[in-house]
């Protein structure tokens, strides 16, 4: 039996790992602060009259997307993940986009029906 039994397994920790993790921890704290600032920014932007309600929606979604990128990219380590994960997420993005297009298409179709009924 060449594989060590579970009771003898140890975690390999060296100076390089410790230094790398400390660097990561600093980064996580900065991202956390950025997310908190982003949350305040979202609320502030929602209370401003940009002249059109659609602009408020776009601004709120842009800030939310930026925050989402920070969580997915740094906390979930997606900026440096393996190809397999990117492949899985590419499929998800494809179907997710399709789902939204179907929604928009059905709404446009509904509008066309309404116009014909008038």
């Amino acid at each position: 039996m060449s594989e060590p039994s579970s009771s003898t397994r140890t975690l390999h920790v060296d100076e390089h790992t410790i230094e790398e993790m400390r660097h990561h921890m600093r980064r996580y704290l900065i991202v956390g602060v950025a997310l908190a600032v982003g949350t305040g920014l979202t609320v502030w932007a929602s209370l401003i009259n940009f002249g059109s309600y659609e602009i408020n929606i776009v601004v709120a979604l842009i800030i939310a997307s930026a925050k989402g990128f920070l969580v997915a990219g740094f906390f979930m380590h997606l900026i440096s993940e393996k190809k397999m994960i990117y492949a899985v997420l590419s499929c998800t993005a494809f179907f997710f986009t399709g789902l939204f297009f179907l929604t928009l298409w059905s709404m446009a179709h509904e509008n066309i029906i309404q116009i014909h009924l008038r």
């Binding site: 920790v13 790992t17 993790m21 921890m25 704290l29 997310l35 906390f75």
Partner: peptide
Amino acid sequence: SVTVVLSWASLKM
């Protein structure tokens, strides 16, 4: 979320 990643990094160390 910050404490979750910090806990994981602590374990790695």
